[in-house]
Design a protein around this nucleic acid. Structure first.
Lengths: 223, 223
DNA sequence: TGTTGTGAATCTCTTCACAGCT
DNA sequence: AGCTGTGAAGAGATTCACAACA
């Protein structure tokens, strides 16, 4: 999808990448970071493909979205490519995230996340159980739900992660949207209704495991 | 994909459903369970679509995989449909799962899972830190890694969930495969290499959140 | 020669449109 | 009249195949 805007005589080309491409670029970037740390300077499309478990033509196709320029017989410059991918993924400046639902999963995400990622940070966590407010978990402050709107606005938080139960997910989503958030990662096993313009990404663990169960069973039978 | 086998004069039709269809059927089934508990007997394709956040033609298309038969003007019988979906998803008898990596995320999955799901059960959890062995977490026994092969075989465990760090994921996958497992759900942020026939499902949380970041940013700019 | 960059072909997934049933 | 079931069209994602290049 492409959108060209002509603003004051200057052309802005807005290119919305395909969903799958974004996923893979995110992965490539992480792989490239590792390569960079290992002191590798150049990498071929088939090597990156090997590390990402896909094909070299897939890699080259994805890199068409990036303003990259590899050199035949030498490959792509690792640091340069990493940089260019970050450009198109547009998360170079720190993006702030709110997490709602401080259960086991929420805690796991806090510790998991605030270790690694530099540009994406969970800066506030909320729970309906106000007993859980006023602490610091993995470097993240916790608050009562009643503080959500205020904190999100004060801290200019742009994204939300929902790790509450299915029954409460919709209510939480509504509050996040009202607070001004524009993207949600939803772990609750329920689809969310939100106004257009809010991007929702869903991780449904039950479905994923049922999918593994299905396909491994089918694989066995197809033998 | 269809495969027809002619065994002793009897035709076996093996129909491998599309990946996305399996995902949605898994969701439909859960929705239908809820409907059933609420005492609802019939449901229309557009109602199911509404609840699953998709279109009625999508629902009807998916249900073509199921031997269902809805009635025009009445819809589908809820319990019957649920039953038929379970048939094609092929997980009617209990499927046993091993979890490797008893960190925050592992614990979250144990409590999250062994509450709900009846047919899918995490029956054993493993960790390289043998301090964590010999306990019971959310009804699941924990063991040292050295017991993995034995327990998987003894208990006829078919699936594995990997919640260890990226560096250790491949090693764990190899052990699971060697123990005889044929499907893996991988939470580690690293792609796994496994022999053909082993189905791998990946949940990459970092990628998911980067995807939300990307698309919500793009949405903002396209306004 | 070996690898990149990309049009074209293929495959997969979703939506449309409408015949057929009750 | 209203909804189901499905062929056919459309959109999206992947693979193929090869010209261009260092």
């Amino acid at each position: 999808v492409k959108k060209v805007t002509n603003l004051m005589g200057v052309k802005f080309i807005m290119n919305k990448m395909a969903s799958k491409t974004v996923e893979r670029l995110s992965l490539y970037r992480r792989i490239l970071s590792e390569m960079e740390q290992k002191g590798l300077h150049y990498i071929h499309s088939h090597q990156l493909a090997e590390l990402a478990n896909n094909s070299s033509s897939q890699v080259r196709r994805d890199l068409m979205e990036v303003d990259c320029s590899g050199v035949p017989r030498r490959g792509y410059n690792v640091s340069c490519l990493k940089e260019k991918i970050s450009n198109v993924l547009k998360d170079s400046d720190e993006i702030k995230i709110a997490l709602v639902g401080i259960g086991n999963l929420g805690r796991a995400l806090l510790s998991y996340f605030n270790m690694r990622s530099k540009n994406l940070k969970i800066v506030a966590a909320f729970d309906s159980d106000s007993e859980k407010a006023g602490r610091v978990i993995s470097g993240c402050r916790t608050y009562a739900m009643s503080d959500l709107k205020r904190i999100v606005k004060e801290q200019k938080i742009g994204l939300g992660i929902i790790t509450v139960s299915a029954d409460n997910a919709q209510k939480v989503a509504d509050e996040l949207v009202e607070a001004g958030i524009c993207g949600i990662l939803n772990f609750a096993p329920a689809p969310l209704k939100t106004p257009k313009g809010i991007h929702i990404e869903r991780i449904d663990i039950t479905t994923s495991i049922e999918k593994v169960a299905y396909f491994s069973e089918i694989n066995k039978r197809l033998r």
